[in-house]
Design a binder for these strands. Sequence first.
DNA 1: CGCAGAGTTGAATAACGTCAATTGATGTGG
DNA 2: CCACATCAATTGACGTTATTCAACTCTGCG
Lengths: 243, 243
Amino acid sequence: MLMQNNHAFDHVEKTGEAIDAGQSLSCLFLSSAAEPVSAGKAICWEGDKAKHLFQVEEGVVRLHRIIGEGRRVITAFLFAGDLIGASLQNDFIFTAEAVTECKIRRMSRKSFHEEVARSEALVPAYISLLCQEAAAAHEQMVLLSKKNAEERLCSFIVKLASRRNPRPRQGLVRVPMNRQDIADHLGLTIETVSRTITKLASRNIVIPEGRHDLRIVNLPRLIQLSGDADDFSDDSCHRVKLH
Amino acid sequence: MLMQNNHAFDHVEKTGEAIDAGQSLSCLFLSSAAEPVSAGKAICWEGDKAKHLFQVEEGVVRLHRIIGEGRRVITAFLFAGDLIGASLQNDFIFTAEAVTECKIRRMSRKSFHEEVARSEALVPAYISLLCQEAAAAHEQMVLLSKKNAEERLCSFIVKLASRRNPRPRQGLVRVPMNRQDIADHLGLTIETVSRTITKLASRNIVIPEGRHDLRIVNLPRLIQLSGDADDFSDDSCHRVKLH
DNA sequence: CGCAGAGTTGAATAACGTCAATTGATGTGG
DNA sequence: CCACATCAATTGACGTTATTCAACTCTGCG
């Protein structure tokens, strides 16, 4: 569920299928106006009847659940093109909030399903999307289950980096969310996130530039530290390129 | 992805839709023979091309991934009726192994998708199944992110208990998997699982009877301790009330 | 009976969390 | 443009929880 439509690394080619999945479904939303949502504002609430699906036209969205008092889990960040609520049955099982200024399109769940059912092409696109979500959820479970703080951070940064950046300056990755968001997504505290970034910086792997940018100095090492890399691939290094 | 087709609690009614989802899809597998798989044996391997889907006819199956050396994550346990690989695109992203003696049916992924596409009724059933998996994956992410050892164990036991037990003796829950399996599913170590069960037993909440059964003595408390419970629900309140 | 594997228990340790103080960034009004 | 206020992020000291490593117990089985 983390960062849908994207694999962890650039060198894993997106299948044509996967690209179509997002894009053909996106067309359904074009008939509705793109509503602006300012940063921090909610788009839908956990527990509400899922009458609508949404599409992120622009900006970054977080999906979260709250358990107990003050325990927040961010199950996913969504980016331009992603759908909100594709995998819902009846109710929203998460709250969606704008991380940055967003433009959001909506359509009723009913007509979404009708449109999908109507078109031969959209059913596989929709199914493909659901499968991608499942794969992402799998990844996230592995991260939360067995990775330490450093591996979590590195995995997260690599995933951010592998996404086409809005402003693709050399090795500079935009981090739209704040430290608390990152912490709640990685199952850590804000302090641990901060300390871990500091440690990575001291080892000259990534260097924070302001609150919302990271310069990636040593990508191969970063990938290696993410815990997903083949331990035996000395070429895990040059296989992966940023853009 | 945890224990598909089931909600956490008995009192949460399954929707007719959800039941149909599993059952109508199951029919597709009836044409193939039920192959016996003995405990511990693999059904498919992570990384292999997903040429087949499987259905658990009988027994319990675990899905896992290995990262690094000796780190295993069990992303789900599957029970009779569940499908293995419904949410796959190309390759298996997990290894499936029999926890107990199993009977497994298979069918090619190609013909599965053809059959589903052919039938008006099966598409929504399939989509419904994928959505249930997504919801279960969400739950599991919350558990792994924000719950402590006790809450994890209690959540797990409640989920087991809410599943229709093979031998539904009063408050006795069958636990087919061993401690290591439980640990790898809950993101804990075997020792922590053991200690936590001991602690729950000393508080007279559940009592282990042999290695593979748990007697549930105080279900309301168990639910409360699982961390999912409504803090304001009537009977969790009077229990918590100060003397 | 004795062995092997699974499970439990205990003590020491490491990793992350908590609390509190400090630094740094951003934004605003003079 | 600077001074100040405010909030985000970092850093440090300390506490807690789960892990690690090791010893021991229990169970099933030949």
